[in-house]
Design a protein around this nucleic acid. Structure first.
Length: 307
DNA sequence: CGGTGGCTGGGG
DNA sequence: CCCCAGCCACCG
């Protein structure tokens, strides 16, 4: 190949990769109604916390806030068999445009935010629960055979792709929140290693909080809203424990500062409802709902940790 | 897509 | 101590 041809080939490669950078996740088989019902039943503990339209995925269920362009909440079942997703590299690492929302956020919309504001593409439903044989055909998204050849199950690959949809992403401060050393990372790590990884499956609901304070809006159209706070609720057999974290601003009287100890971020489910307007676990019925919402979060936390 | 890099915390 | 894991970023 001549030098000129080499330059042309290189340019073409770059163009193709730039186009692929905003790729759609469009190759996944659609879920039928029976599959959707089963997935909602698995992931959505106690019913949806709001009456809005929900998106049902293989690994989670979510309500996307199309106005603020971030997830409002997401709910998922975190089980030990889901802790083995393919290594997060190559196509498994790619953020994907959600084909199921209108005017979707694209990966490129976050370009430059990290350098300018330390805002990263933060997963609400984490990558590490995207594994497992979700469709029960005996094959995961990617396994190694005896011949050391990777074998792929497209349905389970879609679990991974859907976790990487940009509709599962919110702008999160990397250094002080989402990255190593941040409270969001610290809680995810505890869940992955010390709760689910220790053999105790749980249900999780997490989401964003917006209140009466100035909202930072980012992206090319300045329409991606940076949440004021984030919350996460863990539900186990002993009850629920809720965490409320300040991100850009504290809304209401609760919620810990970025440099607080993780345990000091524990609040009640009612505190999350007060600041979000959501109603969790409504399908349980008043008695069971009150029971799970009135449990001592700190005691539940210790139980989940096996202590 | 592969390669490389920064950051922090945990472990040998 | 260094090295690795898990968050990410950016480059061609």
């Amino acid at each position: 190949m001549t030098r000129q041809a080499g330059i042309v080939a290189q340019a073409l490669l770059v163009v193709c990769l730039l186009a692929a950078g905003d790729a759609l996740g469009q190759s996944c088989p659609a879920l039928d109604e029976n599959e959707k019902a089963a997935l909602a039943a698995e992931h959505l503990f106690g019913g949806p916390p709001s009456p809005g339209a929900i998106l049902i995925r293989r690994g989670y269920v979510t309500e996307y806030d199309a106005t603020r362009r971030v997830p409002r909440w997401a709910a998922w079942h975190a089980a030990p068999e889901y802790l083995m997703p393919p290594k997060r590299k190559g196509r498994w690492a790619r953020f994907r445009t959600d084909p199921d929302v209108a005017n979707p956020v694209r990966k490129s919309h976050y370009n430059g935010l990290f350098a300018a504001f330390d805002l990263a593409r933060g997963h609400i439903v984490p990558y590490f629960i995207a594994g497992g044989d979700r469709d029960g055909d005996g094959q995961d998204a990617e396994i190694e055979t005896a011949d050391n050849l990777p074998v792929e199950d497209i349905d389970d690959a879609c679990t991974v792709f859907e976790v990487n949809y940009m509709s599962n992403i919110a702008p999160q401060l990397h250094g002080t929140f989402n990255g190593a050393g941040g409270l969001w990372y610290a809680l995810e790590t505890k869940v992955r290693k010390d709760i689910v990884g220790a053999g105790r499956p749980i249900h999780i609901i997490a989401g964003s909080v917006f209140g009466d304070a100035p909202v930072r809006k980012v992206g090319p159209n300045k329409d991606i809203h940076v949440p004021h706070m984030f919350y996460k609720i863990l539900i186990g057999e002993a009850g629920a424990v809720a965490f409320l974290f300040t991100h850009e601003a504290r809304i209401g009287p609760k919620g810990c500062a970025p440099d607080a100890a993780l345990e000091s971020c524990i609040v009640t489910v009612g505190d999350i409802e007060a600041v979000t307007g959501l109603d969790f676990f409504a399908d349980l019925g008043d008695e069971a709902e009150a029971l799970i919402e009135d449990t001592d979060g700190r005691a539940v936390w210790q139980t989940l940790l096996g202590q």
